[in-house]
C-alpha cells in the first residue's frame, strides 16, 4: 500500500496540484481564498471570544489565536477524511477504467487539504508575530517545532483516509457515520479548550473521556508548539505511536482484503 503510493508519487503530486488548482479555477482571487477564509474565521472568533465573552480557561491572550491553532489542524483532518471517504466512489470512472493505484486517491485529498492548511498555518504564524510584537504573547523557541505535529498528523491521516475510502465503497453508511463521529469528536478534542485537568474541576470523568480520544494528543502538540504549556508530554509519544501503529494495521488489513475487489464494486 505504501509502496503503491511511493511508486506513484509523481502521479500523486500532479493530482494534488490539479485538485488544488481546480478548486479555485474561475475565481478572481484564486488561492488567496485559502488565506482569506482563515483570516475571516480568526477575526470572527477574536470578536466573539475576546470581546463578547471570554471562556474561563482562556489563559492565552488573544483566545482566538489559541482556538485557531487547534482549529486549522482539525479542519485539515476532518475535511481530508470526509473527502477521502468518497474519493473512490466519486472517481469510479478512473478506478474502473484504468490501472489506477487506488490508494493514491484518498491520499490526494489529504495532501490537497494539507496545502490549504499550510496556508492557514502561515497565517496563524503571521498573527502570532503581530500579537507578540504588540506585547501580548511571548515568542518561544518551540514555534520551530511545528513540522513535528504536521508530520504526525499526516502520518495518522493517511491510513485513516485510505480505510474510510475502502469501506465507503462497500458500505455507504460509512460517510454518514464519519460525519457524525467527527461532529462529536470536535467537541471531545482539546480545540476549544486545552487538555488540562484543572479546567474540568470536579468532573474528572470528562477529562478521562477526552484524554482517551487519541486525537486529543495531536492537538496538544499543536498547543505546545504555540504556547509551550497545556501538555503532558510523558504519555503523548507512547499514545501517538500506538495509535499510528493501530491505524496502519487496520489500513493494511483493509487494503489487502478489499483493494482488488474495489474495481468490481465501485
Amino acid at each position: 500500500m505504501l509502496k503503491e503510493i511511493w511508486n506513484s508519487s509523481y502521479l500523486l503530486f500532479i493530482l494534488t496540484k490539479r485538485e488544488v488548482s481546480a478548486r479555485y479555477r474561475g475565481t478572481i482571487l484564486g488561492v488567496i481564498w485559502s488565506l482569506l477564509n482563515p483570516l475571516l474565521l480568526f477575526f470572527t472568533y477574536y470578536l466573539v471570544f475576546d470581546f463578547i465573552f471570554s471562556p474561563k480557561w482562556a489563559k492565552v491572550e488573544p483566545y482566538a489565536l489559541f482556538l485557531v491553532s487547534g482549529l486549522f489542524p482539525w479542519l485539515w483532518l476532518s475535511s481530508s477524511l470526509v473527502d477521502a471517504a468518497e474519493s473512490l466512489t466519486r472517481n469510479a470512472e478512473l478506478v474502473k477504467k484504468s490501472n489506477f493505484p487506488i490508494s493514491v486517491l484518498p491520499v490526494m485529498y489529504v495532501l490537497s487539504h494539507m496545502f490549504h492548511f499550510l496556508l492557514a498555518l502561515s497565517l496563524t504564524y503571521a498573527i502570532f508575530i503581530v500579537f507578540s510584537l504588540l506585547g501580548y504573547l511571548r515568542f518561544s523557541p518551540s514555534l520551530f517545532l511545528i513540522p513535528i505535529p504536521i508530520m504526525v498528523q499526516l502520518i495518522i491521516t493517511v491510513p485513516l483516509a485510505i480505510s474510510v475510502a475502502l469501506l465507503q465503497v462497500f458500505f455507504k453508511d460509512v460517510k454518514d457515520i464519519l460525519v457524525n463521529l467527527l461532529n462529536v469528536l470536535f467537541f471531545l478534542s482539546p480545540i476549544l479548550y486545552p487538555l488540562d485537568q484543572s479546567i474540568f474541576g470536579s468532573h474528572k470523568w470528562v477529562y478521562v473521556i477526552i484524554s482517551s480520544n487519541p486525537f486529543s494528543y495531536l492537538f496538544s502538540i499543536y498547543h505546545f508548539v504555540f504556547f509551550e504549556n497545556f501538555v503532558n508530554l510523558k504519555y503523548i509519544v507512547l499514545l501517538v505511536v500506538t495509535f499510528v501503529i493501530l491505524s496502519y494495521a487496520v489500513a493494511f488489513v483493509l487494503y489487502s482484503k478489499l483493494s482488488k475487489v474495489v474495481v468490481e464494486v465501485v
Binding site: L11, S21, A22, R25, L94, S98, F100
Partner: peptide, 30 residues
C-alpha cells in the same frame, strides 16, 4: 489499456494539464 477515451480528464483544467495527468496515470515520468 484504453478502455474509455478521456478517462480521468478533469473538465476544469486545460488540455495540457490533462495530458500531464492522464500520462501520469499511464505511468509516465515527468
Amino acid at each position: 489499456t484504453l478502455v474509455d477515451l478521456g478517462t480521468g480528464f478533469h473538465p476544469e483544467v486545460s488540455g495540457r494539464e490533462n495530458i500531464l495527468i492522464a500520462s501520469a496515470i499511464l505511468g509516465l515520468k515527468r
